[in-house]
Design a protein around this nucleic acid. Structure first.
Lengths: 202, 202
DNA sequence: ATTTCAGTTGACTGATCGGTCAAGTCGAGT
DNA sequence: ACTCGACTTGACCGATCAGTCAACTGAAAT
């Protein structure tokens, strides 16, 4: 019944691309529609509001782009230490590639929209919190694996140390954006792994 | 000749308050004028654009509020480790106080505007970078002091370790904003001090 | 007391904002 | 082949956006 289309997906893709490169507040519904090659009436056929689109777009972006990369990076057959190292290096490479292509370090899109809209849109904040929680989950599971197989003797409190790694990792992405210099992340791997070397639990 | 007024200062104060609590993009010139009790014509008598106001407002906010706190916190007569501890605790208390008063963890305003506008306004990004560099300066000087007086035996590379502390500290403020929970910062002091390899008495 | 000009005012602009709507179009299921 | 409704279209809405302007006001310096 009726026809189908990929308009919804085009809107999701256009919005995440524009908002990640700029910001939620500076990207208009018209901008998104133009980028997606869609008329505004169609936009409001699929999404009740710009905010609804954004929430769905971040979830779709995670599922389409980030989740597959996490599942690849945190494969159980990779040594725990190498999973963490790959996570750091991939983040570095990605930020560096965007910087060289666009001239700007974009930072983490989930963190950026949370920093911008966290106090104004509880739904956007919750979506960011949820997605960043999935990152934490992979890190924490990795630390537990490393603790179990004895390859990470520095891990004494996986939950707390995973939170520390997430804090440092996304903090470093933020610093790279502030300085607009991807080289801030060059030694991220060593810095994060050294967080696990210290036997001082929190 | 002519008259004087505090209109400029009122605009600076109103804008930093609104933008910190909301975001750059969602605060209009009209909002700022209304909060300052000033007509828009006066706004454009003092500032050529909203962006110019924001740059000046962040600098004025640093000079009026943050710089005095830093100079108090990082007084040379305070033991280096206590300076770092106070910096962490004050940040925790401030975020918690705002959360209890307004219901939202605001995060660091300089980081927030950099996350929002860093890729769009080079002037705003540079101002954030400059101000965050002043934080780094105080931390690094503290580590050098601790290294010199022997009270921080874990300090081997003050510049690098200061960058790590800044990365972790502002990363933690970002996580607190993402989760809208100031208690994320409760153990910031212990976590930061453990970056230095120092043992923390509890 | 007069001059002078920094500062103030409120009405105004054209563009753009998020969002609406009635009138279509067209493809999948029958 | 026809129907149903998912989807598309473009005109439209009132509000708000950043920014302008000429006329006005009043305090400080003379």
């Amino acid at each position: 019944m009726g026809r189908t289309s990929d308009t919804r997906e085009k809107l999701l893709a256009a919005s995440i691309e524009l908002i990640s490169a700029q910001s939620y507040g500076s990207v208009s519904v018209d901008d998104i529609c133009e980028k997606a090659g869609v008329k505004k009436g169609s936009f409001y056929h699929f999404f009740p509001s710009k905010e609804d689109l954004a929430v769905d777009a971040y979830e779709a972006y995670w599922q389409a782009e980030v989740q597959p990369w996490y599942e690849q990076t945190f494969r159980p057959d990779v040594a725990p230490r190498d999973r963490i190292a790959a996570w750091c290096d991939d983040n570095y490479r990605e930020q560096k590639a965007t910087f060289e292509a666009k001239g700007h370090v974009p930072g983490c899109p989930f963190c950026s929209i949370a920093a911008e809209m966290g106090t104004q849109s509880e739904r956007l904040r919750l979506k960011s919190e949820e997605i960043l929680g999935r990152s934490l989950f992979h890190i924490e599971r990795t630390l537990r694996d490393g603790q179990r197989d004895g390859s990470m003797p520095g891990v004494t409190d996986p939950a707390a140390q995973a939170r520390a790694i997430v804090t440092f990792g996304f903090g470093a992405m933020l610093q790279a954006k502030v300085r607009n210099d991807p080289e801030v992340l060059r030694d991220l791997k060593q810095q994060v792994l050294s967080l696990l070397g210290a036997t001082v639990p929190v």
